[in-house]
Design a protein around this nucleic acid. Structure first.
Lengths: 362, 362
DNA sequence: CTGAAAGCGCTTACAG
DNA sequence: CTGAAAGCGCTTACAG
């Protein structure tokens, strides 16, 4: 029994059902949605007639039309600046998306993926003129240096969206699900302290769009009553933080070794290899003489040592972003919803015990 | 300058623009779409007035409304039976999706991801009652044993879709982008023959929903004028092809070794480890005495030997499926569009030279 | 060259 | 209990 392919045939619409059941579209709609508009009440027989007609005709409401009349689509938009399915398996986005998909599925929502075209100089959610997520009930954005404009426009449009990760947008109160860098960093300082480190440095290598890492360091410093000398903040910032790893690594190594720290927290690890080499050249044996903690989640290794890192809860951030978004969609008057999720530690091998306590002289 | 959040404020619509420009909606629409309806022609001044109003009001057409009037959304639906973003990075779908995303992006389309809920016993595209891809202009499906019903319904609906991979649906002529198992398998037989193998077996371990592998084997057998003895098809099928790898592996090893083949093409490799062990027990040293070719793409190793496999062009299949789908969307009257893409060989270490030619006796 | 009007397929106050 | 009608924001024959 071959199924004929009838390409442009008209779908069966609500009107068809109404006619077949001998009722008005109102009734059909109200039966379908199990909703009593105003004083509406449907007789059992009528309801049955409608349901029968629906089944017989194979009627299915058109989601586009529903959306037009203000209903939602159970659709969550996700905008990424690079391809979502990258060649390399472990992309930046993948872990987030695992969480996003899980939470979306739990809430019985589908995903609309919009990728900023790489053909554009500046990938944008508005590359095609209009908000590419508009078809979805709301959107998820990744916090990035380049997306301020989109965030402003989305906000103006009143489109519900949540930023995955934290970022401050001038004049905008965006909802987000972020990592709690502050607590995570503070915890690592405490841990280093417990391991016997008494001089712990923070290597600031770029202007952080979010203040959590440094703030956490400073808070731990205060908690532990460390002096400015014992918990120095080393300013390693350069005009272009991504330029010349050799130069930057060497500079960093000198500054950090000079500081006399036995443990350093790195805000960024771009020049980690070069740093490592230079430190060795300076006679500092890593990680024995100097423990390294990277305040990022990159699964880095250097010279064969897996680096001890902050573990950013990507999966949970994705899930939480979805949950927040669903709340926002449900009630658009809700203020910005923000959540910071606890970081873990990716146990590496570059955080070792501090130097043996030298008995205080005199 | 804080941007106020005005949540449920009305978007500026075409009508607003029309009013502002002092023209009718028709004109606005025709300017926006750069289209002359019937005899329509817009004066340069009028056009300019409209464009000015558009810019001033920040007007952007509502994609949902456009869709309602029969327009497309530049949206490709993808239905998968499991989560698209799996925990393990290299999932079955990932490679396909890389290709799909690339081709979609090249064509400036977005992706709608619909995942068959794992909570259902039987994941279905129609789990929510209606075709979950309906919002998209067309859909991509993965060929699977379980999706016959969906394919039938999609066809009845006249919804444009393409199957990734090949499968025969009773009574349905579906479009697909598939792997050319036939040519791929035949080529491998030829290669084995060139390597000196004179007895090459085909191990049939399950009922293949597509006949390419066996057909390719038989074709090569004919091309090479091999006898039934020199190119035996070993029937290893069991009631449940996924049950008891120990039993199946042992059975397979015996049958294959008994056949006297020096090279075997495996339709499936479920019990490969057990097969390997039993063959060794039988005194056959693998892969020296018996070359193994797996007619699947699984990046398998056995006993430390990377298995020589057919390389299924997943990426290219994904890309091609998108291209076909776009054609179908463009012209729904097109017959089923089908493409089989060439397989490569994943070079392993289990296909070795055949036995040294024994000079013919007499 | 331009506008009034119908239509896409729904939802939903409102009036019986 | 039920229906006629307006509206969502567009497109598009059709008539000026």
């Amino acid at each position: 029994m071959a199924v004929e392919q009838r390409p442009p045939r008209r779908r069966v619409s609500q009107a068809d059902v109404a006619k077949a059941a001998g009722v008005s579209p109102t009734i059909v709609s109200s039966v379908i949605n199990n909703k009593s508009y105003g004083s509406i009440r449907i007789g059992d027989l009528t309801r049955q007639r409608v349901l029968d007609a629906v089944r017989e005709l194979g009627y299915v409401p058109d989601p586009v039309a529903r959306r037009m009349t203000g209903h939602t689509n159970r659709l969550i938009g996700v905008f990424t600046y690079e391809s979502v399915f990258p060649m390399r398996a472990h992309s930046f986005y993948h872990e987030f998306l695992v969480g996003i998909e899980q939470a979306a599925e739990e809430a019985d929502h589908d995903l609309l993926l919009v990728t900023g075209s790489r053909r554009e100089r500046q990938p944008s959610l508005y590359a095609r003129g209009s908000n590419g997520l508009r078809l979805a009930d709301g959107g998820l954005l990744f916090g990035s240096a380049e997306n301020t404009d989109e965030v402003v426009r989305l906000t103006k449009e009143g489109f519900p969206f949540v930023v995955v990760g934290e970022r401050n947008y001038p004049g905008i109160e965006a909802s987000y699900a972020a990592a709690d860098y502050r607590r995570g960093t503070a915890a690592l300082v405490h841990r280093a302290h417990e391991l016997g480190h008494r001089r712990i440095a923070f290597a600031q290598s770029y202007d952080d769009p979010v203040p959590g890492r440094l703030a956490g360091f400073l808070q731990a410093k205060a908690d532990l009553a460390m002096s400015a000398d014992d918990a120095p903040v080393l300013d390693l910032r350069t005009a272009d933080p991504w330029a010349e790893p050799e130069v930057q690594g060497v500079r960093a190594a000198r500054a950090i070794v000079n500081s006399g720290a036995t443990c350093v927290l790195l805000q960024g690890g771009f020049w980690l290899d070069e740093f490592w080499a230079e430190a060795s050249r300076l006679g500092v044996s890593l990680p024995h003489d100097l423990s390294i903690i990277l305040l990022r989640s990159e699964e880095r290794s250097v010279d064969g040592w897996p680096v001890t890192e902050l573990d950013i809860p990507r999966n949970e951030m994705g899930r939480e972003a979805v949950r927040i978004l669903l709340q926002l969609i449900d009630d658009p008057t809700l203020g910005p919803l923000r959540r910071r999720l606890p970081c873990g530690v990716r146990e590496g091998a570059t955080l070792m015990s501090g130097p043996r306590q030298v008995p205080a002289s005199t």
